[in-house]
Write a protein that binds this DNA or RNA. Sequence first.
DNA 1: TATGGTTCCTAACGTTCGTTAGCAACAATT
DNA 2: AATTGTTGCTAACGAACGTTAGGAACCATA
Lengths: 195, 195
Amino acid sequence: METASPTLSRKAQIDQTATALFRRRGYAATSMRELAAALGIEAGSIYSHIRSKEEILHRICFRLADEFMAGWRNATADASAPVATQLRRAIESHVRVLIHHVDASAVFMHEWRHLSEPAHGEFLQLRHGYEVGFRELIARGVAAGELHTPDPAFAALTLLASLAWLPSWYRPDGKLGAEQIAERLADQLLGGLAN
Amino acid sequence: METASPTLSRKAQIDQTATALFRRRGYAATSMRELAAALGIEAGSIYSHIRSKEEILHRICFRLADEFMAGWRNATADASAPVATQLRRAIESHVRVLIHHVDASAVFMHEWRHLSEPAHGEFLQLRHGYEVGFRELIARGVAAGELHTPDPAFAALTLLASLAWLPSWYRPDGKLGAEQIAERLADQLLGGLAN
DNA sequence: TATGGTTCCTAACGTTCGTTAGCAACAATT
DNA sequence: AATTGTTGCTAACGAACGTTAGGAACCATA
């Protein structure tokens, strides 16, 4: 067996703890000494496992981006399905990822700008592609007569806004689960649009 | 006449430049030396006009909070008006403030957590009151039969999400003005709800 | 018993941070 | 002519920053 550690590898622990700290205090305002203290070790020791502070942020952001992308591809794989169905699946997938990684999601939304080039540009490109995907899906639905809205681009914006805003109000102990939130979001966002 | 300076007072210039920097780079990642360089002076010179870095952030956040609050009171002053009207007015007021102070709005949304106590708590209290106002207004509309939604609290969340997300995509040179954005937002958010 | 990977330490590096002290130039007011 | 407020400078303070070097345990495998 390889490193079948009982819990998480030290590197994974660092990522996890850093994610929580970056979320609460922000990337720039979180020092390596704070992170080390939260892990119960000294600051220098962290560098036995990582190369730099930014590497942690990079991993947090792009790992989540991968999850969002995979969910999107999965949800829209069946291009013959009704657009409303694809859209609902995409929303559900997004919410599921969001809720399964609340801290990472908040970091993903706010701290990506501290990435330096070329990671910064790559991240923006990924995010833009994701947003365009939603926008075009909605536009396709409108063109097909499945959805109705006076301004598809605007509808996409409010949808994405609701998704982006979610990690800042969602509480794991709330009464709504992932599926219910996704359902309610889809209903509300499509309710005014779908026929 | 008092300080009828041709442009802005130096203090106002500092606030303005800091707002732009805080927005682009984040509060924690913006140094006083950067701010000074953007103003064309030395770092130490800034302290002839302000007491601390956080004082600038405090002013940015609470000044905008005042504007949002004033707009809200104005929009909902006539309690006898239909809820849909009050809501539409509140949205329009919010969007107008948002667009008139795009940079400050982005700072307001993201950087408030770097305020220390008691300002941090006061800010959260103000924001919470604002959100509760929207939530209750929508709930009142539903109770009065003016609005229809399966989950008023959720509807309030998506509305606030759209408002919060706006400064991150709005471009002053875009084709939509403040009034049109507010109108479209209100239409879309209420369109699915109002009768 | 030797080896290599994982883990962590102490000590320190050079840099940058927010901020202050003390001084000087200039404007407008008294 | 004296005063006051605004504006800015240089030089520096102590603290905190991200990061590195070098060494030492420990544990598995060989």
